[in-house]
């Protein structure tokens, strides 16, 4: 099945890419690995006149680590590169783990970390062919007026379905965005809007260029639990990323990110206050679980039911805490 026609530009530098964006405005669309954008173009979800291919921006694929400055990853680093990077695995294992669960090996060879952070939100009423969407009268997110997930509402609940954002939120990451006015830095928590349609704070003329993880988070224990039906290929149906710093069985720091249950990846902020200074107890675990399910609000956006996804948030949170703290924390 062929795609709608568009022009393709292949800038060699960020400034050149920004020029294209400035020139074409709303008619331009960025593509990096293409694993998200191209199938969406084919399904008629977007019809840009100009596609700006970022693959030529070679200086944006590096991965560096510095004890002072922390981890810096170019937005074009592939998910395979992130998952296999010794630096990432050693200092920020949760990120390597999350990146290593994205889709399938062959898709990780193409998909980029920046792309994964800018993923289009997903919904079973949206990620369908043009014909299919026409058959259901389209939806609020694209070409229609009704949300089939929450009929009567005016809000789109398409779900954030990237894996790495949860880990990076937990790691307190920042991102660098290049735009007409230069480069700015933003905490990843401020990047997401929790809106299925307008998902991220990335202006029309902007490009996400770098992902930065603070040095202070290096060495944190971390784990990512992902719900999916197939252990490869699939997007997450729910995901819990947890990082903790434990000393002598006492939690010194803890952060927990959720993906695939809300229109944005979210940090469960209560977790930090619940756990810091505490020793592991089952009661504390249940308090975290409660906080998680208060934050994660799965709806009927995917093939798995909201009830089951919510239940898995509970199981995954419990397991993550046990894994990182109870079993390993005491020695």
């Amino acid at each position: 099945m062929s795609m709608p026609s568009f022009a393709l530009v292949r800038p060699r530098a960020v400034d050149e890419a920004l020029e294209h964006l400035a020139r074409h405005g709303a008619e331009a669309m960025l593509v990096a690995g293409g694993t998200d954008v191209v199938p969406n173009l084919r399904a008629g979800l977007f019809s840009p006149r100009v596609v700006v291919d970022l693959k030529g921006l070679g200086d944006l694929s590096g991965i560096t680590f510095d004890r002072e400055r922390g981890l810096e990853i170019g937005a074009l680093a592939t998910l395979t590169a992130v998952a296999e990077s010794q630096l990432v695995r050693q200092h920020y294992p949760v990120l390597a783990q999350a990146a290593g669960t994205v889709a399938s090996p062959v898709l990780r060879n193409m998909g980029t970390l920046g792309g994964n952070l800018c993923l289009e939100t997903r919904c079973r009423w949206y990620n369908q062919s043009y014909f299919w969407r026409q058959s259901c009268g389209f939806c609020l997110k694209k070409d229609g007026t009704v949300c089939h997930v929450a009929p009567g509402g005016k809000r789109c609940w398409a779900v954030w379905s990237g894996d790495t954002a949860g880990a990076l939120l937990a790691l307190d990451a920042e991102i660098e965005i290049a735009g007409p006015a230069g480069r700015r830095r933003l905490s990843l928590t401020d990047f997401y809007k929790n809106d299925g349609v307008d998902r991220i704070h990335l202006g029309r003329g902007e490009i996400l260029t770098r992902i930065l993880v603070p040095a202070t988070m290096a060495g944190y224990r971390g784990t990512y639990h992902k719900l999916r039906i197939r252990n490869s290929i699939d997007y997450p149906l729910a995901g819990v990323a947890l990082v903790v710093k434990v000393e002598d069985g006492v939690c010194r720091d803890a952060r927990l990110g959720l993906v695939a249950v809300n229109p944005a990846p979210v940090l469960v902020r209560e977790v930090e206050s619940l756990l810091v200074g505490q020793r592991f107890t089952p009661e504390l675990t249940e308090a975290v679980v409660q906080a998680v399910v208060r934050t994660g609000k799965p709806l009927t956006t995917s093939m798995s039911t909201p009830e089951y996804r919510r239940e898995m948030l509970r199981v995954f949170s419990r397991r993550a805490l046990r894994e990182l703290w109870r079993e390993n924390g005491s020695h």
Binding site: G34, P39, D53, V106, N109, M110
Partner: peptide, 11 residues
């Protein structure tokens, strides 16, 4: 290994 169905040939 990459998927040629999501690669634009011109890229």
């Amino acid at each position: 290994p990459m998927l040629s169905c999501v690669m634009l040939a011109a890229s």
